[in-house]
Amino acid sequence: MSEQASALKKYKKRSQMAEVWLRFRKNKAAIFGLIIFTCILLVSIFADVLVDYETKVKQQDFMNRMASPSWEHPFGTDEFGRDILGRVVHGSRLSLAVGLGSVAFSLLLGGTLGAVAGYYGGRLDNLIMRIVDIFMAIPSTIMAITIMAALGASTFNLMLAIGISFIPTYARIMRSSVIGLRNTEFVEAAKAIGAKNSTIILTEILPNCMAPILVQITMSFAFGVLNVSTLSFIGLGISPPTPEWGNMLSTAREYLRDAPHMCFFPGMAIALTILSLNLLGDGLRDALDPKLKQ
């Protein structure tokens, strides 16, 4: 009896994530993306430990304005003599936080809407999807600008403004996955053993939609980071003196001829983040693709 009862523990399950990881690992570009992104993430988490905010980021040094990269200031200094390395490091925090927040917000809202529309179908589907279509029809940057202009600049509003533009994507992806799964036999089987609709959506359907959603998360995260910078660049996002890659670029633009390094480093930070996320997303897409399974 006792040996029987331990069967669940005796035969370890081979995790599905492990299989995905095996396939992911073979993709060199994706691994590169993963490493870069992990570094960026770690830097932003430990920004305070790495660079002291008060002395390195806020402190101005007029003797050393727009200094080229040197041993003391590896990325050089800006127009107030502040250390650009420190500002880039601390700037990552806001960009990543807002990117992540907007993704979470849109995933929750868009995903739920899409799942409900896809599962129940009919009129409800029509209603939800037409509203989503309206959002889709407005260019995302213009929508974000409008929202920021109306609500005023704050970190939370920024998340909202960027997140709203992702809602249609998540709703559409979720809906199409759910429709594909709604009529499968295993959903019918769950119904046959007496599962409620909510149980079916949560335990049968959602776990099987994760692959396309996961890929989309990396892609829209990248887009979110870019959007934060875009909005800050045009002065609607995070405004100076708080360091943010977009607003750093924006001010540096004026000194492009005299101090190109001021543009180069925040620009590189944005480009690297987006590149790494896109590589990561591509790798995930290949690793999760069930067609390559077997």
């Binding site: 036999e185 019918e188 769950a190």
Partner: peptide
């Protein structure tokens, strides 16, 4: 839901009728 205990179904396609994300147990 109560009466479903007494009435069950076995499907044609053993590939499609099992949730790929769940273990046999």
């Amino acid at each position: 839901r109560a009466i479903r205990k007494d009435m069950q179904i076995i499907f044609q396609d053993p590939y499609a009728s099992l949730n790929p994300r769940k273990t046999v147990g």
